[in-house]
Design a binder for these strands. Sequence first.
DNA 1: GTGAAAGCGCTAACAC
DNA 2: GTGTTAGCGCTTTCAC
Lengths: 339, 339
Amino acid sequence: MRGAQRKRAVTINDVAAAAGTSISTVSRAFHEPDIVRADTRERALEAAAALGYTPNRAARGLITGRTANVGLVVPDVANPFFPALIKGAQARARARDHALLLVDTDEDPNTEAQVIRGMAKQVDGVIAVSSRMSDRALAEVAQLTTLVLVNRRAVDVPAVLLDMAGGMRQAVEHLHALGHRRCVYLNGPRASWSNRQRRSALRATSKRLGMTVSELGPFEPSYDAGVLAADLALAEDATAIVAYNDLVALGVNARLAARGVAVPDEVSLVGFDDIQFASMASPPLTTVAVPAAAAGRDAVDLLLETIGHAPGGERDDHQLRTELRVRHSTGPPPGRPRA
Amino acid sequence: MRGAQRKRAVTINDVAAAAGTSISTVSRAFHEPDIVRADTRERALEAAAALGYTPNRAARGLITGRTANVGLVVPDVANPFFPALIKGAQARARARDHALLLVDTDEDPNTEAQVIRGMAKQVDGVIAVSSRMSDRALAEVAQLTTLVLVNRRAVDVPAVLLDMAGGMRQAVEHLHALGHRRCVYLNGPRASWSNRQRRSALRATSKRLGMTVSELGPFEPSYDAGVLAADLALAEDATAIVAYNDLVALGVNARLAARGVAVPDEVSLVGFDDIQFASMASPPLTTVAVPAAAAGRDAVDLLLETIGHAPGGERDDHQLRTELRVRHSTGPPPGRPRA
DNA sequence: GTGAAAGCGCTAACAC
DNA sequence: GTGTTAGCGCTTTCAC
């Protein structure tokens, strides 16, 4: 027998019949146990267990207006930054008895808007991660469902933010302390909010410390782009390279190795995100760690909280710290004593 | 105004009223356009568009018995093998107008069973990837919903299989052709079906070709386990190491580098899966490529197909090829001429 | 404390 | 061709 042949699902009616009560009693036995007499409740629950009854959430949702689903919209599941976030969000959603609808937009803002619109009715709210949608589009979809942003700010939309400026500041200070005075920044995608954050923090801190920074890019946030960028960066006559993210940094690192440029002896290299493989590279990458799993968890909490609250409530953004992990891809610039 | 304040969702009644027709006509305008007169249809569709109406899938599901949801159950989203699969499955599901409910079981068979049971009512079927459930548990949940397996076989449950034996055979032949005669295999988790597949193919091929293989493990499928395993493997006096998967191989590789053991000059190293970072390692890893994204896509197709068909239909397993990608972590054993 | 009944938004007979 | 109606499985008044 194949799965398709499964028997008609057992409903609340079956349970009521078996328990010799009405369906409302069964319903109450589940949701308001206190209000039903102990022995009646027992009978109902036992009958339910015996029949293997589980309430149909869709039917419940129809009447309560709550689906117990949350949507999670990410730009690219395969980008190593996101799995941890997805995992965190999934775990928290499940812990809070919600299912997670996952959508991958392939980095396309139009897909993003369309997908959220399509999902609106079947979820209680959606979490949009690193959204590339315009503020207007964001405002529009926020009308359709409860929206929570991760790693993106927009007016009147609650968000889980990563303090990338803080991490970047640490990175620049680290470089400066080592003796670096000229660095190059490898820009990420132009439309990326993360890139703007990282870039401006880098510029501000550099300026404050009197470091020169030249900029290259924009580049795709990929390993291949890093390979490409490495040669350009080398031509810039800087002693340190700060990449938009680890993927790019890893590409740079590989290309530098291929060209025989020693890291960190000839040039220092800093990544961003601290993806799993940053620490596995050779040399292990100095990078800014971003708490992706925590962001996923917090986003779910924030969403569920927002749904529960009356609108126009208090300020409820979350801000998560990021911090520099110093590993072996950074050191004093050439000609500078190692200690 | 916050999202929570959104106005009551527009229903089919609103559209019918606006279009001056009955709700059934509106419904038909959407699902059986041909059967409704052109101008009536126009009016209905226009009214729907004007009001921003989208059918409530839960309500529809209640009556059609189809939810347009599919469940995807994976052991660990953060394991680099799965994101590609998830991405493939998500894309195909969306293309076929289905939503994807993602669940991460943290490698726990009990969670797995429980999750599928809980999901059964809100999906049309579920795809279980690399399931560690017992055959009995599998048979039980297959009763509850339409089940499709990926990378696991069980009686009477359709599956998308990866021909790991084929890839492993290629790997061993490759090693043998290079001149290797003694290799060590680093086992993955004991309960893993993948490990059994890989291990037995390796043993069979080795035997056929007259290679000795010693086994170590079981190890967790992780980088750290690889680091640990490297030293043990070295003590085995073999000229080649075959790891359960790339993560392990990468750990081995790092540890070998740290100990100053040259790959492939002193020892050859083979991984499995061809995760993104296999090609980024130094040296780039020779590994067996597994078409994860295709597996995800095929699983969705197979599931939807199975749901559509009458039960007990024809045989419908998919088998996907795997193939060796020769990169730079394998070469002739020491003392053997390089050409 | 428990049951009857009215829907939630929708589709699928069944009339007209 | 189009409208009316009976539910899908459930929660929630409202009586009792």
